[in-house]
Design a binder for these strands. Structure first.
Lengths: 196, 196
DNA sequence: ATTGAGCACGACCGGTCGTGCTATAATGAA
DNA sequence: TTCATTATAGCACGACCGGTCGTGCTCAAT
């Protein structure tokens, strides 16, 4: 089945993508990894942009299954938010990928670029931050966080924790990365709970 | 003079590097930018790794001049730390580069790589964090921050602010990025001042 | 048994990559 | 004025890039 093959191409590509970044994965090495010819592989796509966007959509699917859905089983409000953050940090490893988060890498790779791939990454990032915002709002509604919290600021700082965790865990290879992120997140929550 | 040319190659290369990342700058486009032939340019280096490491060293020099040295004129302790952070955020633009911070990008580009370039980036990042740590220690010694502060944690979270600022300013192109970073930094300082 | 669609193949396109080797032009010392 | 040094250009290399093309296989429908 053609769709099966396409899925396999995207899945293998996602693994390579997480290790090498968007620019680092060529059709040649991808074809070799999948075990088919470059031309046979390329017949499933119209351009390399389309391949890259396919990887990103595949990633969205995988992260949805490994990060979001399990967190949704936690009670609405703060528990769910905490579960999501817990699943978020270092999610690629648990999803079976050998590299880091492709979107985080793409944000630094494509900051000065233009085009469809950048737009896709931007849309995904905005959607993700929207989800975070939504969970924070729910936590406020349940009285777990204070009403006058600056939600966008909270999400912004949370993203900083994610990025710092990614850098210290994957690049610096600091074994304390998980603990640092946890401490930072708890401090962020503390500020979001306390009045003023 | 050969050294003048080498300097010019590295300076132009640094600008391209900030825009396109390590993998994105090829000797061909660099030569065109500098206005000389690829081979004439390459005669100044032994390998592309050496070129890339040269760019990074050039960057260290430039950032030293634009970020660290001006901050050193502020009074030791908290004022100096605040000046450094102020110069740090968005420093590439003030240094005349058209792109973002090459080290930040490299941390996400090279997280799963190996080799001399990665080692160079790692060494530079560790040196930078060492400098941050030193300024925080001085602020403690002057009584501006509390004695029992977890310094490494402070630096870790500060790096998160830098990364989140970089992403929101350069990739997302959020005009509020500077304000968000400022708020986050002030909150971090607040925690570092207050007892408990 | 024949057809036709779907799929993958190898060969190949024009370009660009990083990297050598060699020749020429400019410079400065003797 | 000659000579040695240096800086740059010219050129070619093998590999690989994203992408196209025509071919042949497999298999279900006719």
């Amino acid at each position: 089945m053609g769709n099966e093959t396409r899925e396999r191409i995207l899945q293998e590509g996602l693994d390579l993508l997480s290790q090498s970044g968007l620019a680092g994965v060529t059709l040649g090495v991808l074809a070799e990894q999948v075990g088919m010819s470059k031309s046979g592989l390329f017949a499933h796509f119209r351009s390399k942009d389309e391949v890259q966007i396919g990887w990103l959509q595949q990633m969205a699917q995988v992260s949805m299954a490994h990060v979001v859905q399990p967190a949704m089983r936690a009670a609405e409000g703060l528990p769910r938010l905490e579960a999501l953050v817990h699943n978020w940090l270092g999610w690629t490893t648990r999803a079976g990928l050998r590299g880091g988060c492709p979107v985080a890498a793409a944000m630094f790779e494509l900051d000065d670029a233009e085009g469809a791939v950048r737009n896709q990454v931007l849309a995904m990032e905005k959607e993700w931050r929207g989800l975070l915002k939504q969970l924070v709002e729910q936590a406020i509604d349940h009285g777990h966080l204070r009403r006058d919290l600056d939600i966008d600021q909270f999400v912004w700082e949370l993203c900083g924790i994610y990025l710092s965790h990614h850098a210290s865990r994957r690049f610096i290879r600091d074994r304390k990365a998980d603990g640092r992120a946890d401490t930072a997140f708890q401090a962020l929550l503390q500020r979001a709970r306390r009045r003023k």
